[in-house]
Each structure stands twice: as C-alpha cells, then as structure tokens.
Nucleic acid binder design. Structure first.
Length: 267
DNA sequence: CTCCTATCCTGCGAGC
DNA sequence: TGCTCGCAGGATAGGA
C-alpha cells in the first residue's frame, strides 16, 4: 500500500497539525506489529514535543525534543490519521497531542512498525538513496545497474538501493520509460537508464500531486483517499488495452510480486 | 556477494 | 447464499 507518494502525502497532511505540539498521552492496545512494540514505547513518546516531521523512503520520522526520533512504517495496510476516518477495528495505537488532537495508528495486517530511539534508527542505516535527494542521479542509477543481473523492476524495488519505490510505482515508471520489468539491469542502455531516472521523479511527483493511490484502504492524515489509481497505465490493468497502443496489458510474477507491462510499448 | 522464496497477517473478490 | 482459494501497497530471514 503506502509507497513514497502515500507516505509523503501523510507527512504533508499531518505536518501542520503536529509540529510544535507536545505528545500528552499514548494508548497502546496492540503491540504485535511486524516487530513488537517495546515495553517502554508509550513512556518514551509521552511528554515529548514534536519538532519536525520528515520522510525518508517509506519511513515517517517524527523528530522529538532532545534528538529522540519516533519512526513509523505503514507496512501494507497501515494508516496514521485523525479519528473518524471510518476505521475502527484495527486501531492499535492512539497518540494524543497538547491541543487535544489524536492520531490513530490503524493497521489490519500488522505489517507496519514503530519505534522510538535516542539515536538514529537502525532501519535507516541500510536504506538506499531517496529519489528526491540530490544523490539520486542518472550516474548513480547507472552505477547500480552496471553489474547487476537482476530484473530492473526488482532493482527499483530494492530499498537498500533506492528508498521509496514499491510494486505500483516501479511498474508505472517502467511503462513510461518504455522498458520491460524483466530486463536485466546490466543490459540497459544509457538512454534507457536516463529515462528511468527522469521518469522516477516525474511519476512520483504526479502521484504526490494526486494525493497518492488508494486501491482499498490507503488514507492520508485527514482520512482522505488519493486519486492516482485512476491514472495507472499498467498496474492492475491486466487484459485491458494499453492507453497508448491498445495492446492488452500483461502481468507476470517477478521476485514474488505481480508486475504489469505493455508488450507493445515496453522493450 | 547476489538473487529468490517463503513467511508474517487480515480482508476481500473470484469462482464454484 | 456460502464456502474456499488466491492475492494484496512491505520487509526480511534463510537458502541456493
């Protein structure tokens, strides 16, 4: 569910409501997320002032007083939003702020995770380059591809190389770039890599402008769905005609994930 | 190293 | 209608 554009949309919608506020209460009713919440989780969060809300890849980072960090990953089905979003059944954590605002962490599949650290969270050390950072250049991408035999789509989704792309956006980027998901990274031409680089930023920018993609349960910080799913070129469109050449879109499994492409437009 | 598979968990739609 | 099966936006341990 949440890839970079969805997490960025959550960040943008939450930021004005949380930055500068103090966390007054934390209620945990389910600790069994992807990694269990530690015993001291609620106590280490309560009383802290939120100084900034950042995003790296698919991670949300609440910078707290004294260098402490509250790290949130939404997994496949997680959301962090104000109450009244229609969700209730899997509300695992409530965080109340000094102005009375409450943020509810909801996650039916419990693939998400949260932690509070006094030093930089360990998850970030193994993370690759964020596509919106200046380090994400055509040269960087070319370097990643140079010696790798794996399919380009699997490379794009490897969070230790590039942080933020998931199953939807890697398919959409490769469609726009005219490159098949199965192409081995090391076989890509310079101009193809340049196209993938440029279109990574373009697709993500378009998706953020649309508030992300809501397929079933993604909601932003205000409980609102995104609309980019109506503009998918290939994702979830198996059998439907390509918007560009009318050839039926095909699907095949790559690294255990369904991948969509147009056999007419993508080489 | 590099790459792939299975696994964690709940919900939902397709097909019978 | 009601049941079972497979699949779903992710990360990661473990094996080839």
């Amino acid at each position: 569910m949440p890839e970079l554009p969805e997490v960025e949309t959550v960040r943008r919608t939450l930021s004005p409501r949380v930055v500068g506020r103090t966390i007054t209460a934390v209620a945990v009713r389910e600790t069994r997320l992807r990694r269990a919440l530690t015993k001291g989780f609620a106590d280490r969060l309560a009383g802290q002032r939120i100084v900034a809300l950042r995003r790296v890849g698919k991670y949300l980072l609440f910078d707290l007083d004294g260098g402490r960090t509250w790290l949130v990953h939404l997994g496949m089905s997680g959301s962090l939003a104000a109450p009244g979003a229609g969700l209730e059944r899997h509300n695992h954590v409530d965080v109340t702020l000094s102005d009375g605002t409450t943020l509810i962490y909801n996650d039916p599949r419990r693939f998400g995770m949260m932690r509070v650290d006094d030093s930089p969270p360990p998850e970030l050390t193994s993370l690759g380059v964020d596509p919106f950072s200046s380090h994400y250049s055509p040269e960087y991408l070319r370097d990643l591809c140079r010696r790798r035999a794996k399919p380009i789509k699997s490379l794009l989704m490897d969070q230790t190389l590039i942080a933020g792309l998931g199953n939807i956006y890697s398919s959409e980027i490769l469609f726009r770039a005219g490159v098949r998901p199965t192409r081995r990274a090391r076989t890509l031409r310079r101009r193809e890599i340049e196209a993938i680089h440029r279109l990574t930023v373009a697709v993500l920018t378009d998706a953020i402008a649309a508030g992300g993609s809501s397929i079933s349960d993604y909601r932003d910080g205000n409980g609102q769905p995104g609309s980019f799913q109506t503009r998918f070129d290939v994702y979830g469109r198996e059998g439907d005609p390509c918007r560009r050449c009318q050839t039926p879109i095909r699907a095949r499994v790559l690294s255990g994930r369904s991948s969509f492409y147009c056999p007419g437009c993508q080489r």
